[in-house]
C-alpha cells in the first residue's frame, strides 16, 4: 500500500512533452518518467525498470512502447513488458511490468496521483478549453514559500487568487486574464510551477508571460 497522499499534482505541460520522448521528473523526492508514444497521451511511471533498476526516463520510444536504454526491454502503455531483445523468441512473463501512476491531462497540464487509484478529484477550474501553455519554471524554494508568493506577486491588477488544496492556484487579473499554476513540490527546497493562461489574445502573450515568470522566480529566490 502506498503511503502517498491521495492528491493530484501537476508535473509538466502537456505540449512540452514531445512525441516519442521520455522525461525525468522528481515529485516529492520520487523519481518519475513522463513519456509519450509516437502519438497518444502522456504516461507517468515510476522511473525504474523492473529488470535492473535503470531509470526509464533515459529510455527511448518505438511505436507505442517505451524501451529501457540499458537492455532495450520494451514496455507497452499499460506497463506490461512485451519484448526482451536478449531473448527474441521469449514471450516475457506477465510478472514483468513497469509501475505506472494515473495520468490525466487537463488545462494543458499533466497531472498525476502517486497514491494510485485514489478518490481525490482533479483540480476543477471550469471548462478545459481556451488554456494556452505558458511555461514550467523551477524555483529553488519550498512549496510553502512559492504558494505564498503567488498571493503577493505583481501579475497586473489582480482581482482574485484562488488556491485548490495547495496543488494549484488560479490568479485572476481584472483585464480578464487568468493564469493557472500547478504547484509541484520537487524536494524540500525546490518547487516547480507549471503555468497556463486563458483570456483575450493570450496566445500572442505567451512570451511576455513566460518572461514574467522568470521575474517571479527571481523575486521568490531573492526574498
Amino acid at each position: 500500500m502506498s503511503l502517498e497522499q491521495d492528491r493530484w499534482t501537476g508535473v509538466g505541460l502537456d505540449r512540452q512533452v514531445q512525441a516519442a520522448s521520455s522525461n525525468p521528473v522528481i515529485l516529492d523526492g520520487q523519481a518519475l518518467a513522463l513519456w509519450r508514444g509516437e502519438d497518444g497521451p502522456v504516461r507517468v511511471w515510476e522511473d525504474r525498470c523492473p529488470h535492473r533498476g535503470m531509470r526509464l526516463s533515459f529510455g527511448f520510444v518505438r511505436g507505442d512502447t517505451l524501451r529501457c536504454i540499458y537492455h532495450g526491454w520494451a514496455y507497452r502503455t499499460d506497463g506490461q513488458c512485451v519484448e526482451i531483445p536478449a531473448h527474441p523468441d521469449l514471450a516475457p512473463p506477465k510478472t514483468i511490468c513497469a509501475n505506472s501512476y494515473p495520468a490525466e491531462s487537463r488545462y494543458g497540464i499533466v497531472w498525476t496521483n502517486l497514491s494510485g487509484a485514489g478518490s481525490a478529484a482533479l483540480p476543477d477550474f471550469g471548462a478545459d478549453e481556451g488554456w494556452e501553455p505558458v511555461r514550467s519554471i523551477y524555483v529553488d524554494r519550498p512549496a510553502s514559500v512559492v504558494r505564498e508568493a503567488l498571493h503577493s506577486f505583481d501579475f497586473g491588477d489582480v482581482s482574485e487568487v484562488r488556491m485548490n488544496g495547495g496543488s494549484a492556484a488560479l490568479v485572476r487579473v481584472r483585464s480578464g486574464l487568468e493564469i493557472l499554476f500547478a504547484v509541484q513540490p520537487v524536494s524540500d527546497g525546490k518547487t516547480a510551477l507549471h503555468a497556463v493562461a486563458k483570456g483575450q489574445g493570450v496566445a500572442g502573450r505567451r512570451a511576455d508571460l513566460a518572461r514574467r515568470l522568470e521575474r517571479l522566480r527571481a523575486t521568490i529566490e531573492r526574498a
Binding site: L13, Q16, Q18, S21, P24, I26, V186
Partner: peptide, 14 residues
C-alpha cells in the same frame, strides 16, 4: 547535474 529542471533543454537536446 540532472536535466529534471530543464524541459526546454531536454527537447532541444532530443
Amino acid at each position: 547535474i540532472g536535466h529534471e529542471d530543464y524541459p526546454a533543454l531536454r527537447n532541444w537536446m532530443r
